[in-house]
């Protein structure tokens, strides 16, 4: 209860707007960002509220993308994936006071939790009712129905093919491409060197290509 009250107070307001503005793109972290993040994590572990807020503001979009890529849509919406991402953030906040820096980056700790939460959600056969948004009172500025359907089908196809990759290759491609991590950051999360990430992602993409080709022949 105490944790939840704290969470409600410091969780960044991200209820409006997209995960990232496509025009500005996702900026990949540099080495100085990494040391900033380490310092931020250290302050957050000590209970600094603004550091916790900044840390979550930095990590949450990556967690949301990861959960969306792994769990997909239910009834056309990402409610389940977003709920799981929220659970991850709450779990991270709850675990923060007990977190000890063992040399690995904080992101690997966060994505470790995210991976378990996603696995729990995938195991769960019970799907709760999907809340619907209020009907929009104005023109829809988004893509039309045809474009939406084509994009949805291709995205779902990508998820199907990714699910057929070995776990380590799937995890690597989702973190690298969908969560938008750099090769260095992905390596930090998965315990690999940046060079090993580059070779492994090349192999994973080749495997994905092969699966797509086999499917188009069949």
């Amino acid at each position: 209860m105490t944790t939840c009250t704290i969470v409600a107070g410091i969780m960044p307001n991200v209820t409006e707007g997209r995960v990232a503005d496509a025009a500005t793109g996702v900026r990949l972290a540099t080495r100085s960002d990494e040391s900033d993040l380490r310092e931020l994590t250290s302050l957050a572990v000590q209970g600094d509220r603004s550091a916790i807020e900044s840390l979550l503001g930095h990590l949450r979009p990556m967690v949301v993308r990861y959960c969306r890529a792994r769990l997909g849509r239910v009834s056309g919406h990402y409610h389940i994936a977003d709920d799981v991402a929220q659970e991850v953030c709450i779990a991270v906040l709850s675990a923060l006071p007990r977190y000890r820096d063992m040399g690995r980056p904080f992101a690997s700790f966060v994505f470790g939790i995210a991976s378990h939460k996603v696995a729990d959600a995938l195991r769960s056969s019970v799907r709760s009712a999907v809340p619907t948004q209020d009907l929009p009172d104005g023109p829809d500025e988004g893509p039309g129905p045809e474009e939406t359907v084509v994009r949805y089908i291709e995205a779902q196809h990508a998820r199907d093919l990714l699910s057929r990759l070995p776990d380590n290759q799937r995890e690597l491609l989702i973190l690298r491409v969908v969560s938008g991590l750099s090769a260095e950051e992905t390596g930090n999360v998965l315990g690999m060197s940046p060079g090993a990430v580059r070779v492994a992602q090349h192999r994973a993409l080749a495997r994905l290509r092969q699966l797509a080709e086999l499917e188009s022949i069949a």
């Binding site: 409006e16 995960v19 949805y152 291709e154």
Partner: peptide, 12 residues
Amino acid sequence: ALVADVESQRLS
């Protein structure tokens, strides 16, 4: 397409 789909929907 997967990236576009993930980015397309507003956060709930």
